[in-house]
Amino acid sequence: MKPSRRPEAGELRERALRLLARREHSRAELARKLEQAGFAAEDIAPLLDDFEARTWLSDRRFAESWVADHRAKAGSVKLAYDLRQRGVADEVIQAVLRESRDSEIERAREVWLKKFHCVAADASEKAKQMRFLQSRGFSPDVIRSVITACD
């Protein structure tokens, strides 16, 4: 069995850059990954401050990327929840979601059509369809407009 070792300080910057090269990360997500790799929190914070000053790390850019990648299958409620779980501030979340709000009804309609293909035959089927859209993170107003437009 190999003995575990503490990573050296010079490795911190390299590891952080490798992670950012793969995809965008939120500040909290990147800090968590670096801590799990064994780096000290007091070394991580100044490095991430430097990355933010150089715009190599941006919660806003991460949120825009996340929404672009996941909006085809999820509504604003779920997207906001996922971003909060990744440490993005509410102001950033609201700003990013506000930009994509106009297409939410269309996205919900596409998700609904892909799953159900037809209008609900009875009230229980309609409730099932509404629960499905709710589980995908669409708001009640959007769900009602999609279901009533399809009736």
Rank of each mutant, 00 (worst) to 15 (best):
R18I: 07
E104V: 11
S58F: 01
E29F: 02
V146G: 09
I105P: 00
K73Y: 04
P7T: 05
R84P: 11
A31N: 02
A16L: 07
D90K: 10
G38Q: 01
F132T: 05
V119W: 10
S76E: 13
E99Y: 09
G38W: 01
E125H: 06
A121M: 11
W56T: 02
M1L: 15
R107Q: 14
A31V: 02
L133R: 04
A95F: 00
A9C: 06
D141N: 12
R15M: 14
Q134P: 02
R131C: 00
A40Y: 07
R54S: 06
D49W: 05
R131N: 00
S100N: 08
S100M: 10
R109N: 09
E11P: 02
E106L: 13
R98N: 00
A45H: 08
R18N: 13
I44P: 07
A72G: 14
E110S: 12
A68C: 02
I147E: 01
L97N: 04
D122A: 02
R32M: 08
K126D: 15
V96P: 03
V77L: 13
M1E: 15
I143E: 03
R84S: 11
L17N: 11
R23Y: 06
A108S: 06
S65P: 10
R131M: 02
L17H: 09
V92Y: 07
W112D: 10
G87K: 03
A68L: 08
E35D: 05
V146F: 09
V92F: 05
D90R: 12
R86M: 07
R86F: 09
A149Y: 09
R131D: 00
R54N: 03
K73D: 15
E14N: 04
S65M: 02
E106M: 08
A72E: 10
L19G: 08
A89L: 12
F132A: 08
F138C: 08
R6D: 05
V119M: 11
A53V: 03
F116G: 00
E14A: 11
D43T: 05
R13Y: 04
